[in-house]
Write a protein that binds this DNA or RNA. Structure first.
Lengths: 199, 199
DNA sequence: GTCTATAATGTGATAGAC
DNA sequence: GTCTATCACATTATAGAC
């Protein structure tokens, strides 16, 4: 890995761990083992480095959502994504950025964050639509809304887990919404058969 | 309002708006209109002031959860609390603190945050238990888990709204979980009558 | 309680040699 | 590309007079 890559990777780590405001260029080059001259050769400013790191963090995260894509039982894909192992006490690389005023108030820095969430939302909407079309989820559920609900459960679960310094609340939040989802599922798996087939 | 109170109130505002790391004692006294001597007379350090501000922010927030308490239809109380007006783009005064490493890693500063979430969770559990006991929500739902789910939807809704700079995703997340909750409700309001009365 | 002066340390760069 | 030197300014205080 060359110097530039090390700087980007390290800035990405530190932005995840400590945020943007609380990470200094010095912190980055000390952890990366890079001299000051090199740092300012590759990046004109802290913000430039942050933008590169942010784009990298976003790119790191999106492949995980491929669980939602592909063929096969949509409900199984939903569960696979929700149940994917996550380090609840570390939180979300991307979601974390929304709490950094210097990121939130800078349209250029916020753009990759907004774009990432928009893409995840699109994937959720697709799989939820499939589940509804297949009759696995109730027809009266709104896929766009529900997608935001499921994303919020993950993001909010991190907040609760960090507050308690315990991954339990994250698991609870996730398992709780899965329980609700299953409860409003239709079909043979439902312990409460759907008697409302009129349309 | 005396000097000390002004310092605490202003620190509280700035910690909400900008977080702990990115707020300097100078920022606080300039906004509060307080001199440096006074500030260090009342608070020995930035951390001391932050602790007072944090406790105040927590105390400000808890009364809102009284929607969940009291008598009357538990489902109505749940909806009242969820639908309470919130400024989605400002986020949660308390939840925000979990993203500040200097707060998260300081047990003394994190304690009021953990305590506040624990209290809100307790109130949620009570109202959810009532709803289940009254037969309004399905017996197979776990109140402790569901409480974390509903709290996570609020906290995560803020994250999504800030990412998009649009309160829409917050409302979606909240309305989506309400829809799920109603869908797994029992009783006359349910468009899908419960046929599973066996216990 | 409030004021001004002082200071050690950190931040976020720029300049120019190698 | 990398290095060291330098710099203006901010941060987080402390000291002591009023």
């Amino acid at each position: 890995m060359d110097t530039r890559e090390r700087l980007v990777a390290t800035m990405g780590e530190l932005m995840w761990e400590r945020g943007y405001a609380d990470t200094s260029p010095r912190d980055v080059r000390e952890r990366a083992g890079v001299g000051q001259g090199s740092q300012y050769h590759h990046f004109r400013s802290k913000r430039d480095l942050a933008l590169a790191a942010l784009e990298r963090n976003v790119a790191d995260l999106l492949p995980a959502t491929s669980d939602l894509d592909g063929a096969g039982d949509p409900m199984a894909r939903i569960e696979a994504y929700l149940l994917r192992p996550r380090d609840a006490l570390k939180g979300c690389k991307v979601g974390r950025m929304t709490q950094d005023p210097q990121v939130r108030e800078d349209p250029v820095l916020l753009a990759p964050v907004a774009e990432a969430f928009a893409q995840v939302h699109d994937r959720w909407v697709s799989v939820l639509r499939e589940a509804i079309a297949a009759g696995v989820l109730r027809q009266d559920l709104d896929p766009g809304r529900l997608a935001h609900t499921l994303m919020a459960v993950i993001q909010g679960g991190y907040v609760l887990a960090i507050a308690q310094q315990d991954p339990g609340p994250f698991r609870d939040a996730r398992d709780g919404v899965l329980e609700l989802l299953r409860a409003s599922a239709t079909g043979a798996d439902d312990p409460r058969p759907n008697t409302d087939e009129r349309q």
